[in-house]
Design a protein around this nucleic acid. Sequence first.
DNA 1: CTAGGGTTAG
Length: 607
Amino acid sequence: MTGTSVLHQSLLLAKKQDPPEHPQVNNIRLKEEECLSLLKRCSNMEEFKQVHAQVIKCWGLFSNSFVASNLVATCALSDWGSMDYACSIFRQIDDPGAFEFNTLIRGLVKDIKFEEALFIYQEMVERGVEPDNFTYPALLKACARLRALEEGMQIHGHVFKLEFQGDLFVQNALINMYGKCEEIEFSSAIFNRTDQKSVASWSAIISAHASVGLWYECLMLFGEMSREGCWRPEESTLVSVLSACTHLGALDFGRCTHGYLLRNISELNIIVQTSLIDMYVKCGCLAKGLGLFQMLAKPNRLSYSVIISGLAMHGRGYEALRVFSEMLRQGLEPDDVVYVGVLSACSHAGLVNEGRQCFERMISEHGIVPTLEHYGCMVDLMGRAGLLGEALELVKRMPTEPNDVVWRSLLSACKVHQDLEIGEVAAKNLLQLSSQNPSDYVVLSNMYAQAQRWDDVARTQIEMARKGLKQTPGFSLVEVARKVSKFVTQDRSHPEWVNIYEMIHQMEWQLKFEGYSPDTSQVLLDVNEDEKRERLKGHSQKLAIAFALIHTSQGSPIRIARNLRMCNDCHTYTKLISVIYQREIIVRDRKRFHHFKDGTCSCRDYW
DNA sequence: CTAGGGTTAG
């Protein structure tokens, strides 16, 4: 049925049925139904409006008849984006009932007009009309998206008063609403009370935990869900699970999830694919992530975002910039998060000029107001490159008050470049922000140690102790045979420590042939050279490598995650080990990855 | 007298 013919018919109808001389109820009824059937056959908004206009012209609006109700319903449920029109018809109904309210609210929610939906709901409450069990989930969805906890709780109150207290769909929507509003206890309480849980209930509770960053609990819940058996997780659940893997660096769990997806779902959607890419990249498998990215049919802004920040983490600055310009060529508009990726790519690869240009371009071309995070990247960029004065200037010029992250990155840059003067400025500001972060004191104290200012070292450490802060010990995690082992410096608590130290001894022999000599300059203890060398040997990363070399097969990569930056000596040492033992060694520190292969590191000694 | 519900990434 084409547009003209529906319109044509409505004109014919109008001609054929002039207002009757003696209108009868049945006659009107008939006309109503005829109008309705015409209106229902319309296939787009234009057509609908024209026919509607004809109907009004001939017979006036049947304002309180079921035609009007159906008009609202048709607009609300079609994909024509015609909610304004539906609202205007709705406003002409004198005494809207439950059906009109319900359809209008659901239409508004479907059209992402959440505020309006909640507004209509208030009107509904005032008139004493009850939403039905189909409308509560829509309202709760609106609250979830708007993070409108107060309204959400009001609706929950109404649901609570219902005799049946809402069905499973309403329960699931409540779990989700509280999750999105970061009220995880309420979410869990409702989840635990729900006896007939559906996949949606599990999805909702898992994503609730994901949205407050309880990643470990996410995986636990997922395990529980699988053990309960009857529910096969669906894509959306697994996206939350993958996100948890990403944040925990749980590569094995992530791989299993990928396998599960491949076995059970024929075509993965863009969200799952993007989550997979992010997981692989942030768990250290850049190549795998890049491979999946290249297979995307139509990458969107988020896909680009994850791959750009992934390349950044791996120190591949130029590639990140290339992908970024590819993204612009595709006509995708970058947002602030994409720019954080771009700027950190420049920072990790030491691309100072490129970074400056991007920062300018972000403001002038894309109209993005730089956030603290962007300034943080810029300070980092300048600082790493040794432009400490310029970095300090930038911090002073910032329109918003610099936070601890900004000062901290300036401080650590000062440590790398041994600039005690600016370092002290950064430290002073950092400590003024009443930092509870022990590592701030440690960095400062180490800087004093480097400058042989032992009095200041002592002073800083006393200050730290006075505040009851303890130095966070550095550790390295390594996964062997699906089990993660943790090593701290000089660790002798591992059941195999004797073997491990024997291995260290052998490694040192080989290293000496390659011309390795220990770099003790960063052992910041007031002890003699021999003692320093002894200390270096027992750094946690070396223990982890030794352990992995003993227990993994020739040629398989070694993955290590550590909580602190690695020292220069560990860096040189690991490069040599990678060539001597022909192993790829991937180390993740707090911020980025180092790929050691054939005697070089992906960071090109810039980190 | 009608229509029809939850969840997914950087």
